[in-house]
């Protein structure tokens, strides 16, 4: 059996990551180490978590523009409650996660029941969450609660002298849980079915409404979790945190080989999509003379290549069908 065509984008993604990492290793001393690899996870933990939620949304054929704002709102609510109201983190963190999930559910319900485009509903969600941040405070709220600083500083040692942060572990767990959900639960398969053909899903008797709303719930939850992780990373709440983050997330998912029209893709691909973004940033920081905006240009270029690749693959698929 030749390589199943559905695996082409993800194989390209993984190869791309390996090539980039190898190229970096040859070019820069100190690049090829386990710690650089681990740092990719540590520095992109929140991106990874958000992208996991976004993968489900995009797989279902939708889009969620609100993720960056929900992250900011989560940091803001966490900081506000912990720092200003003195609530214990054990209460605040579940509350924030619940808030994200409810926020997503409401958007999902509007998308499904009023048949409004996901783009526009989540755009409103993005405005709303961002605006609510400023209702809490316009300024940065620094968090110095011992729990948060402990979470920020704890290093989990790994063999070979390298280490991971707690955030990175949370992100890895999220990826693992997402892979399981996507492939081994009915919900996951329904998401794929929904993205493949909504009308067929309906006629096959699948719970379309529930699945569609839940997808946004999941994305809201992931964004909130990413927001919590973000507070571990930044130790502050701020309304300008994660501005434009939805684009990075969508880019990670697309570079991970997921079809933006839905139905095709893997969470594992998203994982490598995030790592590719991380590698680009790492290479640019190692290069020293290159500036950070090259990241955006390269990511834009990769987006273009992947979108075109998918376009070619799917048009060939159509001709096969005929």
């Amino acid at each position: 059996m030749s390589l199943n065509r559905k695996y082409i984008p993800i194989v390209v993604t993984i190869l791309l990551f390996i090539v980039m990492f190898t190229a970096g290793s040859f070019r820069y001393t100190g690049f090829f180490s386990l710690q650089v690899l681990m740092n990719l996870l540590i520095d992109n933990a929140f991106l990874l978590i958000t992208a996991v939620g976004m993968s489900f949304v995009i797989l279902s054929g939708g889009i969620d523009l609100s993720v960056g704002s929900v992250i900011a709102l989560s940091t803001m609510v966490s900081a506000g409650l912990v720092q200003q109201q003195g609530w214990p983190p054990a209460v605040v963190i579940p509350l924030v996660l619940l808030m994200g999930a409810v926020f997503g559910t409401l958007m999902g319900a509007m998308i499904h029941y009023f048949a409004i485009q996901p783009f526009i509903v989540t755009l409103a969600g993005m405005f709303l969450a961002r605006g609510l941040c400023y209702v809490i405070s316009i300024d940065t709220i620094t968090i110095d609660h011992s729990f948060y600083t402990a979470m920020a500083q704890t290093r989990i040692p790994l063999p070979g002298g390298s280490f991971l942060s707690i955030s990175a572990v949370i992100a890895l767990l999220a990826v693992a849980a997402a892979i399981f959900t996507a492939h081994y639960t009915r919900f996951g398969r329904n998401v794929y079915a929904l993205g493949g053909n909504e009308q067929s899903s309906l006629l096959m008797g699948l719970p379309v409404a529930r699945t569609k709303v839940l997808v946004y719930t999941l994305s809201g939850f992931c964004s909130a979790l990413a927001g919590v992780v973000f507070t571990f990373y930044m130790l502050s709440g701020y309304g300008l945190h994660a501005v434009g983050f939805e684009l990075d997330t969508i880019a990670a998912v697309v570079i991970g080989g997921t079809l933006l029209t839905g139905g095709v893709g893997y969470v594992l691909g998203t994982f490598f999509g995030v790592l590719i973004q991380g590698v680009i940033q790492t290479i640019i920081s190692f290069e020293g003379t290159l500036s950070s905006w090259w990241t955006k240009i390269v990511i834009g270029l990769l987006l273009f290549i992947f979108i075109l690749l998918q376009r070619v693959l799917s048009s060939r698929r159509l001709t096969v069908k005929e």
Binding site: R186, N190, A193, G196, S200, M204, G205, G263, V264
Partner: peptide, 16 residues
């Protein structure tokens, strides 16, 4: 055919 072309044959038979 009201199935999901992106899913495997087996899934299309059993999904749900």
């Amino acid at each position: 055919v009201n199935l999901c072309p992106n899913l495997s044959v087996a899934e299309n038979i059993f999904i749900g």
